[in-house]
Design a protein around this nucleic acid. Structure first.
Lengths: 205, 205, 205, 205
DNA sequence: AATGAATGAGCTTTCATTCAT
DNA sequence: AATGAATGAAAGCTCATTCAT
């Protein structure tokens, strides 16, 4: 059981993470200042440095949990027996898209090699997650199409994965609220998934 | 014939453009400083302001020419009567991909809304080009699929366009030479285009 | 009671104000740099931005308090019933002169249109004060001369006000101590006031 | 006789002086850039450095002739026998005011000790002129009032001189054209001169 | 005599970060 | 544990001035 001190400390940390998450999402990493995060979190900007080495560390610590949560959701969906592989793929794709729009401004950091610090510990962690996400999609595509695990599958998976990201990246800078954005884009994404799967199937004939 | 002065002036300007192009590419517009560009170009930072009104203008002058060239190529392909619409679309897509890989450096700037300030003159120019490129693709998709110009066409065109960009963006940070990269990715892109078109057709049934 | 923090903060702020006052006085607003003010105040230039939004705000915060004090003194004198209007005018003029010599440093900023940006909030504040000071003098001239509030009164008031300022501006750069300066100039100012009033009266005959 | 080269050279120099004069007058010394002057003068900014050591020297060379011209005018007026001393004083005052409004932005440099470089040659020259102008006014006041050359005269002269400058300084930042400004202010100045002289006379009684 | 090219010094301002309490 | 005070580094940009032709 946590002491009162520990509890309060933990609260502050969470408040900071929440605030940072919101702001990064709204305005993008660079455009957000430490002082802004602090203000929003109801603490002093120096307090942030008690919990996080620097701004970048804050970002990484912020992104890990949501990525892990995403992964968990993926696992759950995978395990629903009542769904066909194709339905699973669609559902997972929807989750993925939602997640990315939700974490819009972390999007870059997740998926652009550019902003990676490959030499550092947390980065590796992120890369691992990234790869796992891709693997899950690949697997579901494989099952949906009854394909062997060959080069063609890899190519299909890439096209699928990158297409999703392409559409996503195009919208990841829009300044709409999550709800509005999702509502607006849902048909496009659903259609895209549909068409890609249809295309794959047709190609295989 | 150019005077010595003119020649030197032109050289410097080109050096700046080259340097800016590289750096914007590597690190993104915001992360690059004027002084950095200057150092790389072998001149003083003030010299840059001799040739470009400000940082943003430099960015735009940097991107306009290649975009215009691309547009010209598109026009040419559109006019080749011996090609079917689908073949034109494929050809144009190939050109587009080649262009983007070639200008990998500037890719972000071209296609990320990030650097847009819609209220300003030069930006409009770029946006116009962007839109025209999209329109040409849309039109060819329309003809390929014998579609009316409706919402479905728009959705298809978006999916097509953004999928290409998705795959592109994934590879635009690789540090391979253009030739090698194109050779390596050509099959993937051709396959993607194929699958999308097949998917569209199937969806229409 | 003030905490140590508050005390130190207040000290620094005052140091900055003092330094800025001196420097603006010596060299004029534009010619003084933020770094110069900071150096003189014994702090970093960034510290200034802790206390003042920007250079212009510093200027205004610098000038407002003394102007307000002056205004208060004017009000007090106006209310002394035992004095005739002419005596009030003289007394107020003396106060005004004393004030200006005391704030020699800031004289320019107070009274030169140069530093005005009429479109901005804080500036309006200063302008308002300036106008009020002028109005009080005008009123007293009116009463002293039993004039109606017409164009002639306005002309007289202007001449009176600007003449005072003319003499002031001439001496506002001298580097004597306030006491010495006042002692030395008192006769001149008293004489000037006298002559102007005499002149007004004679003109009216 | 001047060679063609010499003539052209002289022309350029005059063009620069003219341009600088206009611009300094319009916007004030600091706000005018060398490049602006050059553009206006129809030459390159580097050319300016052929004729003038630096910006400040340009300013000083610019102010001397007009001051000298003013002095000449003063002398001429002094010598007109048909005018009474008082009329001469009034006429000279008018000339002085006109000159100052005309040279509005040099006004500071002429009359503010602030911007003097006391250690330098041209500055001394200006100071000499300044003093001479004051002396001429003093002398005419003396004659107008039939005063001996005593402390009272000095005090009167100061009040007179500084009052003029006070009114002038107040208007020297207005951005109206010379003609308009003179027309607008003439009555005020005439009235001021009138009142001061009346005041002097009354005081002497 | 004249100029285009180029530069260094310097400006205001912002920000992540550290120090002292 | 927490914070207000303070700072150094760096950004974009301007300007008077010099260099090379």
């Amino acid at each position: 059981m946590k002491s009162k001190h520990e509890q309060r400390s933990e609260d502050t940390k969470q408040e900071i993470l929440k605030s940072a998450g919101q702001l990064f999402a709204e305005k993008g990493y660079d455009a957000v200042t430490i002082r802004e995060i602090a203000k929003n979190a109801g603490c002093s900007h120096t307090t942030i440095y008690l919990y996080f080495k620097d701004k970048e560390t804050l970002l990484h610590q912020l992104s890990m949990p949501s990525l892990q949560e995403l992964q968990k959701k993926f696992d759950q969906i995978s395990k629903i027996n009542s769904l066909s592989s194709e339905e699973k793929l669609k559902e997972i794709s929807r989750e993925y898209i939602k997640f990315c729009l939700q974490n819009r401004s972390m999007y870059d950091i997740f998926f652009n090699a550019k902003s990676s610090r490959v030499d550092e510990e947390p980065e590796l962690e992120i890369n691992k997650l990234r790869i796992e996400i891709f693997e899950i999609m690949k697997e579901l595509i494989q099952k949906s199409l009854s394909l062997p695990n060959n080069d063609q599958l890899l190519a299909f998976a890439r096209i699928y994965y990158y297409s999703l990201n392409g559409i996503l990246s195009t919208y990841s800078y829009q300044h709409e609220s999550l709800g509005v954005l999702i509502e607006r884009l849902k048909p496009t994404f659903d259609l895209a998934v549909d068409i890609l799967i249809l295309g794959f199937k047709e190609k295989l004939k």
